[in-house]
Design a protein around this nucleic acid. Structure first.
Lengths: 200, 200
DNA sequence: GTCTATATTTGGATAGAC
DNA sequence: GTCTATCCAAATATAGAC
């Protein structure tokens, strides 16, 4: 009897406000840097007073945690969306490009998801599960393309994150390293082909 | 007449204390994370009160700046020290290994020197000059080994920082990506050889 | 050159009124 | 659910005594 339609409407409003708060947090983090986020700023951006935020998030870390989860959900979504079958090389190049674009378009997010830089922050197990899922998914995809050996997967991740890192650190907004993605993937695949052939 | 020997002794002592402060800062940063550094902690570690530090450094950022310079001086020193002539491939492998070891052995220093993560900190022009010098030196060395084209140098830096980044982020204390350094360098050099041969 | 005392700011978080 | 008021802690930095 207490469960009325109004409850749904309320919780919907609640979720909407949470989303609004997170959007403000992303905005600030992109502008001021990940570590510079403050609750007062977030509140001001959404037109609230800081204490009101506690109706939606238990702490500042809870906000980081929600952003962490949101980031990985977005990445997973893009990967699944992109999942068409095609020539292996072309597919791997697109995969690489998809990941690098995702990182480069929002360095603050990259920092949050892939680097350990906020002192004291660790994702909740629920959020962390999303990170694991995205890693597993990537591994499966690479496996389908013939990249199965652990060492080869490690070489892949090193190459891709290296391009990402350099692009973000040394040419933000440009494409100096983005241009090299296709060549880099070819280099890696050629290398693995040669390795295989030699072993026979 | 005012320049007496005592002045030298005093300034020597002063420099020694500065060095002591920096050593304490490194220690803390390695233990607590780069961003977590506080003047109080530094002072306590060297057995001082926080305000006394201002006799040696104008601000917290000045400490970061001195650490930044120290880091690059150390890197330059190692690079020059390692500078023996030898087979090109072996030399490049050693160069790669030297850089990656330098980064991996102190992730906090890596963060300070190569990533932009402390909000508001920018190295002074004197310190930045050391960063440029180390980059120039590296480029010269790679040039001697035949790596001259900008795109190829960019591919090199991407590969090396990628290995570094993965080793630090995903296997701290281990050698999962360190093991791959030689293979990665071979991969890159083979690729460049092939490229050159094809163009002829 | 080091200290104590303190100013100042900032920011996370809580209590309680409305 | 939002606010005001406030607490508390931490941290940079300065003033001035010794």
């Amino acid at each position: 009897m207490l469960e009325q339609p109004i409850t749904d409407r309320r919780s919907k409003r609640h979720e909407a406000t949470k989303a609004e708060i997170l959007e403000a947090a992303w905005e600030l983090v992109r502008a001021e840097g990940l570590a510079a986020l403050s609750l007062r700023d977030v509140a001001r951006t959404v037109g609230m007073q800081a204490p009101s935020l506690y109706q939606y998030f238990d702490s500042k870390h809870a906000i980081y945690d929600a952003m962490f989860a949101q980031g990985y959900r977005e990445l997973l979504e893009r990967m699944v969306w992109d999942d068409t079958d095609k020539d292996t090389r072309a597919k791997l190049k697109r995969r690489a490009r998809l990941f690098i674009d995702f990182c480069v378009e929002d360095p603050a997010r990259y920092q949050l998801l892939f680097q350990r830089t906020i002192p004291g922050f660790e994702p909740s197990s629920e959020s962390y599960a999303l990170a694991v899922e995205s890693l597993t998914y990537t591994r499966t995809e690479l496996g389908k393309a013939g990249l199965t050996e652990p060492a080869n997967l490690d070489l892949w991740t090193a190459l891709i994150t290296g391009l990402t890192d350099q692009q973000i650190s040394n040419d933000p907004g440009g494409d100096r390293w983005l241009q090299l993605v296709d060549e880099a993937v070819d280099m890696l695949l050629d290398h693995l082909d040669t390795k295989k052939r030699r072993r026979k």
